[in-house]
Write a protein that binds this DNA or RNA. Structure first.
Ligand SMILES: [Zn+2]
Ligand SMILES: [Zn+2]
Ligand SMILES: [Zn+2]
Ligand SMILES: [Zn+2]
Lengths: 153, 153
DNA sequence: AGTGCCTTGATATTCTATAACAATCAGGGC
DNA sequence: GCCCTGATTGTTATAGAATATCAAGGCACT
């Protein structure tokens, strides 16, 4: 999971292939633009802002406009390939795109690395807390700030 | 806790007095501007944006500038009188300013009412989850979207 | 009065996101 | 092929949220 411990090119490739396959199943359109934006989101392997994506997308002559990026991101989020990190106004690739879900994250305040937690038990606790306070549960964002194992050593 | 069930003027008054007292204890300055901004945040009793505060603050002739509002909000957040709701770019008065803490919220998607949960157990579960994933815990934001009891009836 | 520090004012700018409308592209029926 | 339709992308403009920077004012201490 940690950046220096994996082959990141393969990591990106996997994410793209998974997305491709899921879109075929759902009959949604994984267009070149959407594919490219997903690739750029994964390329950083840290939360990336929409405008960073925009800059990367605009190499050379033609500069793309914000709606182009935001629309692609909207699609990717809708399909569950990307999550938005509210506290950073940033986006990050989902580690488990096959199952639609709301992501819960830990964010390292030193290295900005983000880890997605897909823990059923935590999800259940949050849902229960809402219900015990009289709310029906729709979804939740959880973003924990802390320092990752690497950075503490 | 629900809007229609309490005397909201008293609610505001309590918040202002509590803040005043806490600032005296801490020897921080609860200036007229900061007091007024806190009053405006409470006045809505729903998340309020910085620019809404700005508009309310600018009654009549002189229009205040954004930094005036943001600086006051920064102070109020720092002191723990106000929380920021990340998913709404909004601010809300804290229900328990005496004890500094990170707020955990439920947000009604129908009426926009927000309820602050100060549940030790939930906080502990979140902290544990972070630690079991190798992160030290600094703080966390939890914002649950759902429908409140009122709106379901 | 003079100094230093905190607070507020004022101007400009940056960063984030969306509205509105035009152009293009893909697929289905003819 | 050609038209129709809906989805996608391009383009321009604008809205919304937050900060950088420097000037002015207020307060406490000497
Ligand atoms: Zn995910
Ligand atoms: Zn780290
Ligand atoms: Zn609180
Ligand atoms: Zn409600």
């Amino acid at each position: 999971m940690l950046k220096h411990k994996h082959d990141h090119d393969a990591c990106i490739e996997n994410a793209l292939e998974a997305a491709q396959k899921i879109c075929e199943e759902r009959e949604t359109r994984f267009t070149p633009l959407r594919r490219r934006v997903l690739e750029l989101v994964w390329s950083k392997h840290e939360p990336i802002t929409a405008y960073e994506v925009l800059d990367l997308l605009s190499d050379g002559k033609k500069r793309v406009a914000p709606p182009t990026v935001y629309r692609a991101l909207d699609f990717l989020i809708e399909e569950g390939f990307v999550h938005r990190i509210e506290s950073l106004n940033s986006f990050v690739g989902c580690s488990d795109p096959a199952h639609k879900h709301q992501g819960h994250f830990m964010i390292c305040t030193k290295c900005s690395n983000v880890t997605e937690m897909n823990e059923r038990s935590l999800h259940d606790v949050i849902k229960k807390a809402a219900e015990s306070n009289g709310y029906s549960y729709e979804n939740s964002i959880l973003e924990i700030a802390g320092i990752c194992e690497n950075c503490r050593n």
